[in-house]
């Protein structure tokens, strides 16, 4: 057994999982505060990255393009809340899910309509080259992504757990009627939530875009985040991170050590097999809350 190679595979898998987590966090945030499984998160990621890179290519400095894109994403979030979600208050979850599914197509089409279909290079100034640690190679860029994901989780964790805003968010997610009765302004809470989700989409879009180029396929990374949510739990930000790490690790180990014996291509389906196993054994995921309803 080549132990240094195995350690490299494990680290690589964990870092790959962090990239999935970056997208999954956006899902969790909206689900946790509004109960909506936002299928449009991938499209928001594409829209944010395309907007940023196009503004940057037009000559705007990095940080001005970033702030401007963030403003556009917050505005988009507010509009989504006002035009799509507010009229659907208290509709069944499947109705809200279908609304976001339709929304994802509109945002995808809108992104390409406004910014074109060309593939863009995105250079964040972080070299995507390996750090040699003995014979183990670890990507500098992946380490940076892990740091960013960690910082987002820490900030969100503190805000949601220890601030009045966070308490309001959790109350809104727990029971919309009760939250309204206690005087919480649900539309404002949801608008803030969607704005923060827009910020996470922007960060995720930039990191994924720097890896793959900014192009339509960014919207497809959402598909890899769904098993992460099932494994980690739909309403847990820590779950999104742990779920991402587990999915990334499983994919990489299976592809490297089992793939050669069965023809490869395992990472196409192994994450979903893992998610299915969790649904059968622990439907709430590792960190998801079991819902209790009075019947």
């Amino acid at each position: 057994m080549d132990w240094s190679f195995l350690i490299g595979v494990v680290i690589s898998g964990l870092l790959a999982g962090v990239m999935y987590s970056l997208v999954a966090i956006g899902f969790v945030l909206i689900y946790k505060t509004s109960g909506v499984l936002n299928f449009a998160q991938g499209s928001m990621l594409l829209f944010a990255a395309l907007t940023f890179v196009s503004l940057h290519e037009e000559g705007l400095p990095f940080w001005i393009a970033f702030v401007l894109t963030l403003a556009i994403m917050v505005l988009l979030g507010v509009l989504i809340e006002k035009i799509v979600l507010r009229p659907l208050i208290n509709q069944p979850p499947i109705t809200l899910f279908m609304a976001t599914l339709g929304l994802s197509y509109i945002i995808e089409g809108g992104a390409q309509f406004v910014w074109g279909t060309q593939v863009h290079q995105l250079d964040l100034g972080i070299a995507d080259v390996p750090l040699p640690l003995n014979s183990i190679l670890i990507s500098q860029f992946d380490i940076f992504c892990a740091g960013v994901a960690g910082a987002i989780v820490a900030v969100l964790g503190v805000v949601l757990q220890y601030t009045r805003v966070g308490l309001a968010f959790r109350a809104a997610a727990f029971d919309q009627y009760a939250a309204l009765n206690t005087g919480l302004r649900l539309p404002r809470i949801w608008a803030i939530t969607w704005g923060v989700a827009g910020f996470i989409a922007l960060v995720g879009g930039l990191l994924w875009g720097a890896r793959t180029g900014v192009q339509f396929s960014l919207s497809l990374v959402v598909l890899k985040s769904l098993p992460v949510l099932v494994v980690g739990g739909f309403d847990s930000i820590i779950g999104a991170i742990v779920g991402g790490l587990l999915v990334g690790l499983t994919e990489t180990l299976m592809e490297v050590y089992v793939g050669p014996f069965i023809g490869g291509g395992i990472d196409q389906w192994i994450a979903y097999a893992l998610a299915l196993a969790f649904l059968l054994i622990k439907p709430t995921g590792l960190f998801g809350q079991r819902s209790v309803e009075r019947v």
């Binding site: 898998g13 870092l15 793959t212 890899k224 990489t252 592809e255 291509g265 990472d267």
Partner: peptide, 20 residues
């Protein structure tokens, strides 16, 4: 011959095999 599942946005495992 190593397969990369569509669309190919993550290829760490395939390139680790190539490295080996």
């Amino acid at each position: 011959q190593i397969e990369v599942p569509d669309p190919g946005t993550q290829q760490q495992s395939q390139w680790l095999q190539i490295r080996r």
